[in-house]
């Protein structure tokens, strides 16, 4: 069975999530900070009247570095009744490949990413990491900030 992945870049790493989970992709939107929220929550944004929580995927994956806020892109994913935005550095293509091509994540992968990456595959000589969207949005599992 083929799957389609919406790909994006965070800290020079290529990630993909199932395109069916993605509602839309937006350029940077002004955000409202939420004090005392988990540290990966970057803020709230107004998506045509709907209030969407934005998660800094870099922080969620425990990756170093930072990008200026206004250069970030929003990948808005549907969850249940609402939507959550993942903040990423750059948006890639939607690629299609066979599920069988998906390999288990390498043993050497550690940390938070280990929990969130469900598989890897190569695409145009690049390593693509497929993320489990459910686990990525479940802050209770790991990577919770104060």
């Amino acid at each position: 069975m083929t799957v389609q992945l919406c790909t994006f870049v965070v800290e020079k790493l290529h990630f993909g999530i199932d395109v069916l989970d993605v509602q839309e992709v937006l350029a940077f939107n002004p955000m409202t900070r939420v004090p005392h929220a988990p540290s990966v929550v970057r803020g709230l944004l107004n998506l045509r009247g709907q209030i969407v929580t934005a998660i800094d995927l870099r922080a969620r994956l425990g990756l170093p570095g930072s990008v200026e806020a206004h250069r970030m892109m929003n990948v808005v994913v549907r969850v249940g009744e609402g939507a959550v935005s993942l903040l990423v550095d750059e948006i890639g293509d939607v690629i299609e490949f066979d599920e069988a091509e998906l390999l288990p994540p390498p043993e050497t992968l550690t940390g938070t990413a280990r929990d969130l990456v469900i598989g890897v595959c190569t695409h145009e000589d690049r390593l693509l990491l497929a993320l489990d969207i459910g686990r990525t949005l479940d802050l209770g599992s790991s990577g919770r900030g104060g």
């Binding site: 939420v34 005392h36 929550v41 944004l45 107004n46 209030i51 969407v52 929580t53 609402g82 959550v84």
Partner: peptide, 23 residues
């Protein structure tokens, strides 16, 4: 507030103000 922020007792919710900003 979304499920991720439900635990914050400090806030009862959010709203969109006249200029489109979230408060």
């Amino acid at each position: 507030l979304g499920a991720l922020l439900k635990s914050l007792s400090l806030f009862a919710g959010a709203t969109i103000l006249g200029d489109g900003g979230v408060a």
